[in-house]
């Protein structure tokens, strides 16, 4: 049995089914992300794990023990919110020590633990500051420290980076992952940002409309989407309808064909390898290290990525090219 085991969980608000028969299993020390658009139910599941919402049906077990009916106070699960939720009347030190004070630890022990965790989140020196004197990134690290210091069995992160600037977001992303690895802390991370999910997670649960669409390692989710939704949500995929796939490749399929832009090989126009087909460059976008071309072939538009090596490499609009896609890179999705 997994460390955090969620079985057939359901949540209904009035007549609205927000979470429907989800099964989730998370091992000790894993960093797992719930990924999905807003309203997919990911935050609701997180709040049920924390104990803020009671499931309409189903069970939540931690370490083999059913905690479905337990109050949030007794669960020993830490949570970090998107808007930090620091207590504005308390200093950094008091905020972090809050949970220890609740547990009536001796003052000296509290001070020692707070100092230690402050070092962990690299905020030493900020003990006496109030939350409104800190930047967004610093506040979120205080919130993280506050959740960590009580040594929770599980750490829940509810879109903790969404309110931050892009640059700070990237730094904090690495810092969180780093701390999580060091503490071997079982962590559930909720986000709607696929890049965040891919870079941070051991495993990802992609959710949509209250259901788990697909789960697996970051690599699996990215390279082997099982449904049209996942392919779309992970971004960039060329998604061909059945008739387009037939038109372009002469294949008969059910559902959609998903092809990653970087898996399409571009060959020079004169090349006559097997399994290639002709196309014309329609436009291109510079994405930094990669140039993304739109190539039209047999009435179908495809996105094709090529590494941006040097200026001479750029294929001009209107140029003819030959494209090649290996069988492994053509995925039929539901």
């Amino acid at each position: 049995m997994a460390f955090l085991d969620i079985k057939q969980i359901n949540k209904r608000f009035g007549t609205q089914q927000v979470v429907c028969d989800m099964d989730i299993a998370i091992e000790r020390g894993e960093f797992v992300t719930f990924l999905g658009p807003s309203g997919c139910g990911k935050t609701t599941v997180l709040r049920m794990i924390a104990g803020f919402e009671a499931p309409t049906a189903g069970a939540i077990c931690v370490g083999g023990q059913d905690i479905t009916a337990q109050s949030p106070q007794k669960r020993g699960i830490g949570i970090v919110f998107q808007n930090y939720a620091l207590f504005p009347n308390l200093t950094v030190e008091q905020n972090i020590g809050f949970g220890l004070k609740v547990r009536k630890l001796p003052r000296r022990e509290i001070a020692a633990k707070v100092a230690e965790v402050l070092r962990l989140v690299e905020l030493n020196g900020k003990e006496g500051h109030y939350p409104h004197e800190l930047s967004g990134g610093q506040r979120q690290r205080v919130a993280l420290a506050r959740a960590l210091v009580v040594e929770p069995k599980i750490l829940l992160l509810d879109e903790p980076l969404s309110a931050l600037d892009a640059r700070i977001r990237k730094n904090l992303r690495e810092q969180i992952r780093d701390i999580q690895r060091r503490l071997q802390l079982t962590t559930v991370f909720v986000t709607h940002d696929q890049e965040e999910a891919l870079t941070m997670s051991d495993r990802i649960y992609v959710m949509n409309q209250g259901k788990v669409e697909q789960h697996g390692t970051a690599e699996e989710i990215y390279t082997q989407p099982e449904t049209e939704f996942v392919a779309r949500f992970m971004g960039n995929y060329n998604l061909l309808k059945a008739e387009e796939a037939h038109q372009l490749l002469g294949l008969q399929i059910d559902g959609h064909m998903a092809i990653r832009p970087e898996s399409i090989h571009v060959l020079s126009a004169g090349s006559h390898e097997l399994g290639t087909f002709e196309g014309v460059i329609r436009r291109h976008q510079l994405l930094g290290g990669v140039i993304r071309y739109q190539v039209e072939s047999r009435g179908v538009a495809l996105w094709v990525d090529r590494l941006n090596r040097n200026v001479a490499d750029l294929l001009p609009v209107g140029a003819s090219v030959r494209l090649q896609i290996s069988d492994d890179d053509m995925r039929v999705v539901r």
């Binding site: 109050s71 949030p72 669960r75 949570i79 919110f81 808007n83 939720a85 809050f98 919130a143």
Partner: peptide, 13 residues
């Protein structure tokens, strides 16, 4: 903020 209360609860308060 409701999160204040929830943060307090999750910390055992």
């Amino acid at each position: 903020k409701t999160e204040w209360r929830e943060a307090c609860e999750s910390l055992g308060g």
